[in-house]
Write a protein that binds this DNA or RNA. Sequence first.
DNA 1: CACAGGTCTCTTTTT
DNA 2: GAGACCTGTG
Length: 760
Amino acid sequence: MSIYDTLNEQQKKGVFTTEGPVLLLAGAGSGKTRVMVHRIAYLIEEMGVNPFNILAITFTNKAAGEMRSRVDKLIGFGSEQIWVSTFHSMCVKILRRFADKIGYDTNFVIYDTDDSKAIVKEIFKKLQLDSLHIKEGAVRGIISRAKDELISVEQFEKDAAYDYKERKIAEIYREYQTTLKKNNAMDFDDLICNTVKLFKEHPQVLANYQERFQYIHVDEYQDTNTAQFELVRLLADKNRNLCVVGDDDQSIYKFRGANIRNILGFEETYPNATVIKLEENYRSTQNILDAANAVIHNNVRRKDKSLWTRKDGGNPIHFRQFDSADEEAEFIAYDVKSKARELGLPYSDFAVLYRTNAQSNLLEKACKRAGVPTKIVGGISFFSRKEIKDVLAYLKTIDNGKDDLAVKRIINIPKRGIGATTILKAQVAADEEGISFYDVLKKARSIPSLAKSADKIEKFTDLIEYFRHRLENYTVIDLMDEILAKTGYIQILEEDGDEDALDRINNIKELEADILAFYEKNEEATLSDYLADAALFTDLDKLDDEDVPKLLLMTLHAAKGLEFPNVYIAGMEDGIFPSSQARSSESRDELEEERRLCYVGMTRAMNDLTLTYAKYRLLYGGYGGEYRAVSSFIREIPNELLDNKPQVRRTRDFDDYGDDNVFASSFKPKAIARAKQTERMPQMAKEVKALNQISGLAKGSDMNLGDLDYTVGDRVRHIKFGDGTVTKIDREPRDYKVTVDFDTAGTRIMYAIFSKLKKI
DNA sequence: CACAGGTCTCTTTTT
DNA sequence: GAGACCTGTG
C-alpha cells in the first residue's frame, strides 16, 4: 500500500502527470492541496527529482508553510530544500540578489499601500494637480493596474498621447516611479514586474532560474495577474513542467488585477496541456454544496463543472433575519456559544465571514458580551500600526538612507521642533541638488534655507549616524533597544497616558519578539531581509499560533483556502453583499465576482452554514443608516435548502413609502445621498416613521413622542448595555435623547426610539 | 513652528 | 466614528 492509494482517480492523474503543462481545475474542497503535496512527494520519491529543483508558488505565507510541512510529513525528510513561497516573497529573494542589474540597490525597501499613498499625495502637491478632477486613490489604482499589465511608463505615455487626463496620469506614473527609484524602494507591484524586467533584460539570470526550477507549481492560479502569468511563463519556458491549480469559480481578486483569462485560456497558451478536473468535494455536506452550486450557476462566464459529495443531506442552510445589525451580531454570538456547548466543539471550529472589515466591530463586541473569545483576521494589520511603523521607519532609515519617506516619518518623532515647513524646505533643496532628502539633512548647515534649523537637524542626523555605526556590531534587536532608549519613544507613550498607550507598548514588545524569532530562524539574515519579511507579512499567516481556541472573524476574501465545520456569513443584504458598487455597475463582471465570493464563503463550511440578514444597518458612525433588501444571493438558493424562507421583500416593494423613500437611498448617485445628509432632519423623521412601520419598534403608527414609560431616575434595561439609571432626558425635534448611566457599560447617550429601553 | 480644535471624507475586498 | 486635513492661536 503506497501513500498514493488513498487518492481518487482524478487526483492520481494529477499526481502522476508530472511532465509537461498541467491544468488542475480543482473545485472547492476537492483536495487540491493534497494533490499538490502528493505530487511533490511523488516527484522526489519516485521520480528522483532533487527537492532543490522544485518550485511551488502559493497565495499566502501560511499556505506555503502548510504545504512544506505536509510534504515533510508525507516523505519524512528534506522539504526545506523545496522552494515554496508566495509570488512576492519569491521575487524579493530574486531581486535581493540581482536588483543592481536593473538599477536598484539590493537592499531596496518595500513600500506598502500607505507608503505608496503618501508618495502619490506628495506628487499631487508637487505637480499642483488639485484642478485635475481625479482622485489620488483612483490614480494609484490606475498605476497599479498598469503595472499588473506590465505597461511601462513609456508605453503608458504613448497610449495616453491624445487624452489630457491620461497624459496627466502618465506624468504622475512617471514621477511615482522616479520617486520610488530615488528612494530605492519598490511597491508590491514592482516586485513582480521588476523581476519580469530582470528576466527579460538578463537572459543569463533567467536561464539560471530556469535551470533550477525544473518542476513548477502554482496554487490559486485563477488569481494571478498578467505580470505574474508572464513571470511563470518565463520561468517554465525551458522545461515546461508547469502545473497550475485553480478554480475559476473562486477568482475573487479581479479588483487587484487578477486576470481570469490566465486560467480560462491556459489551454491556448499551452495547447498540449493535460486538463484534469477534480469534482469530488470532501469538505461539505450535500445541502451546502447544492446551495453553493445553485448560486454559482447564475454566473455566465465560467467553466462548467459541478461538485458532488458523498456526505448526503446534512443540516439545512440556516437563514435568519433581523431588524438591526446589532441583533444580528447578538444572535451570532449566542448561537456560536450554544452550538459550541451543545456539540462540544472548540470555538476555533466556528468562523464568521463578512463582506467588509467595518462589519467586524459589532460582531466582536457582541461576542465579548456573550463571553465568546474571538480573533479578528485582517483588518488593520499589525505592521500598519503607528508605533510599529515608527520603529520600522527608524530601522529603514538606518538601513537605507535613500528612503525619504521613512526619514520624513521619524524626523520629528519624538518632537524635535522640526515641522512641516522645514521638511518642505529640505525637500526643495534636495530636488535642486538632486540628492536624497537625508543627504540634504546631513549638510543642512551649508544650505541657506535650512541654516536656522541646522542645530535641530544635526542632532537628528547625528543620532542616525550613530545608530548606523552600531549596526555593524549590534544585532538588530540590540539596535532596536537602543533606538527606543535614545529616542525615549516608550517613555513618551507612557507619559502621554493615552488610553491605548499600553497597547502600543505591548505592540512594540511583540515586534521585538517577532524580530527575535526571525533571526533565530534566519541567522544570516540582514536588516533588509527582516524589513522585507515584515512588509510582506499578513495577519492570515499567523492563524495557527493561538493558545486559546477562538472564534474567527474575517472577511470573505481572507477566508479563501480555509475551511471550518461551522460557518456564518453575516450581512446578506443587497448593497452590502453584493456591494452597492457591484450592484450598480454597468457590467455584470463585478456582480459575478461578488457571486464567486459568495460561493467561496459558502463552500468554506463543512457541516453547518448560517446566513444572516439585517434589515437596518448603520454604516459609518451612525450617518450611513439604511434599510436594505435581502441579498439577491439568498434568493438564488432554492427555498427547500433553507430552514427559513426569506420574506421576499424586493427593493421595489419599499417604494410604498414615497418616492423620496429611504430604501432607495443606497441606490442613488452619491451626490444625492450627500445632499440628503445635509438636510437630514426631515429625512430622519421619515426614516423613523418607516422604521416604526416595518420593524414595529414603537407601538402605533405615530412616533409616540409623548409617552416614554420611564423618566429621570428610573432604572432601565438595554438589550446591549444591560441595566442602568436614566440621568437625563432631552427633548429633540424628532425624538428624545436619553442619557443613561449603565452599571457596567458606562454612560451612554441614545435616541429613545432606537434604544428600546425598558423600565424595570 | 507646534498644537488644539474644528471640519470633511471615507468604505469594498489585499499581496 | 476614525483619520486626514485645515485653521487659528500662542
